[in-house]
Write a protein that binds this DNA or RNA. Sequence first.
DNA 1: AAATATATTTAGACACCTCTAAATATATTT
DNA 2: AAATATATTTAGAGGTGTCTAAATATATTT
Lengths: 219, 219
Amino acid sequence: MYSLSEENYLKAIFHLQKQPNQGVSTNALAEQMETKASSVTDMIKRLSEKDLVSYKKYKGVKLSSKGRNAAVQIIRKHRLWEVFLVDQLNFSWDEVHEVAEQLEHIKSKKLIRELDKFLDYPKMDPHGDPIPDEDGNIAVAEKLLLNEINPGKTTVCVGVKDTSTHFLKYLDKNNIALGKIIHIKEKEAFDESMLISIDHKELRISKMVSSNIYVKTKN
Amino acid sequence: MYSLSEENYLKAIFHLQKQPNQGVSTNALAEQMETKASSVTDMIKRLSEKDLVSYKKYKGVKLSSKGRNAAVQIIRKHRLWEVFLVDQLNFSWDEVHEVAEQLEHIKSKKLIRELDKFLDYPKMDPHGDPIPDEDGNIAVAEKLLLNEINPGKTTVCVGVKDTSTHFLKYLDKNNIALGKIIHIKEKEAFDESMLISIDHKELRISKMVSSNIYVKTKN
DNA sequence: AAATATATTTAGACACCTCTAAATATATTT
DNA sequence: AAATATATTTAGAGGTGTCTAAATATATTT
């Protein structure tokens, strides 16, 4: 398998390559990796030897499909570990990164498969980023209205439809805000009202409310 | 902190130093580490520079208290991860080692403290070896008779007092053997009979039986 | 105690990954 | 389009951790 350093480079290239479809510059990579441009050039050559990236001098690097796959699997591991740390080991959002950064390099197919199962196949990490599946597919978590979600699901608030002052004040009063974790406990068939919990407090909301809050499902 | 290689050497020295109180030979270390004697000599010099071991040429190495402490903490981590893998992630005895070997090098005080708590402070790993505490103390797990243990505890069978053929046949018939995990569910005050479970099967045993089985408690 | 066998260390080299300083290519100004 | 600035690569070197082959020390035989 790949070395720790190689894996970190692959991951960094993946993150930087996201937006543009063109190569990642040596300088950008150097900054991301907190190293010198010359070191980057050296490493890129090695990655290129192994067909993990395609590289033309002075033109930047792109991940090959082999390289992209490796990067995505590391990201999958990183995000699953983050879920574990936050959900099971009482880590807070800001504490997880450093440790997940180490855990993501552990090599064991079985470990990660069992961890995924243990965590009940979460779809996103504690920061709301999607967790790639075993085949490397990254679901674009779709934004749904809260009233479309079934009971038992856990969601993250990502936006609102109604942006009137009235509604925003209502949300504020009830502790509903961007990034808040909303768990759906019950849905009343009769009037489609919902019993949800936010910050361990229960709250009943009408359909009028639930149909104006955008969320992404976490599981 | 120490490098991966350094940590592995410290651990190996610790394991080899156990029996005799004298230094560990270069060759023994080389075999344990699956490397060459010359590499060992090189590394020993570096460890000696860092005061992790005391070393006299041709006389072998001994861990300093600093080195011993580091080694014990790695072992603590290794064994806690083994418990996690077996108890929570459906790993079997023989599968855990390789993965724990990697996980033991993760650096995070909080991680290991929370993991310990999450696992409910286990006293031994799945192989029955004791888990050192945060201060580096390694409890010598005492061998007790099963009838001395309180309900709720999980134990490992480590021996028998009565060695008659009759008794051994009884044990065999009921799936009680060395290394088996025995969980104590109830203890009847009246006759001191016990309800235990082995391999997920329940079994009621009399005091006559429980007072002839040696166990070590796992928690 | 000398001869032989075994254990250990030293010397020199190599792979991986990093660095600084210098050289070269590309981009931007004028 | 020449001059300047910026980005990138090359050259040479260092640290870590490994190796082989040779030298040296310790242990065992005779």
